[in-house]
């Protein structure tokens, strides 16, 4: 079989900057959903070599995504046979970065959370408009994961919100 070229959902999309706030696609590499079997969370953490994330947090490429469930991001999963159900989600999601002074304000037009209080290390499962989203904050800003098929919609919705906030700030 010929070697296929892996492309992110928005490959070639240039970043968009409005009022010092930048929307860009990010490539997080491999993503694996890890759903612990009942009572196996500690054993999963031991195998991963790091604590299982508490609800609404992420650390070292491991992000809480639901009860007993997390996304392992940026590296391939170790063998968790008998401990957890692992599904390769790489390429199934698009990741957007939103960084800058208007990031929280723009995102709050689409996400019903108080994002001014959303600090690095925090994560959330929440809607982006009507889309399912995994949201993370790091030192740089927001990381927004939505289904790959929603990539252009998410980009359009966020950039529109950002433009509106930028226009308002310019008044």
């Amino acid at each position: 079989m010929p070697e296929l070229i892996a492309k992110t959902a928005l490959a070639g999309q240039a970043p968009a900057t409005h009022a010092g706030t930048t929307l860009a696609e990010a490539d997080l590499g491999p993503v694996t959903s890890i759903a612990c079997f009942p009572g196996q969370q500690k054993a999963v953490a031991t195998t991963l070599g790091q604590p299982f994330p508490a609800p609404n947090t992420h650390a070292k490429g491991l992000c809480w995504t639901g009860p007993d469930q997390a996304f392992l991001i940026g590296r391939t999963a170790p063998d968790l046979t008998g401990l957890a159900a692992c599904t390769d989600q790489s390429g199934g999601w698009v990741t957007l970065r939103l960084d800058g002074p208007l990031a929280a304000e723009a995102l709050m037009r689409l996400v019903p959370l108080d994002l001014h209080k959303f600090t690095p290390g925090q994560a959330a499962r929440a809607p982006l408009g009507h889309m399912q989203m995994v949201l993370m904050a790091d030192a740089q800003g927001f990381l927004i994961l939505v289904f790959r098929s929603m990539a252009r919609t998410a980009w359009h919705e966020i950039e529109t919100a950002l433009k509106a906030c930028a226009a308002r700030a310019a008044l």
């Binding site: 609800p55 609404n56 009860p67």
Partner: peptide, 11 residues
């Protein structure tokens, strides 16, 4: 209990 206070539209 897991996510905290959330808007009705999420449910």
């Amino acid at each position: 209990p897991l996510c905290g206070p959330r808007d009705r539209r999420e449910f």
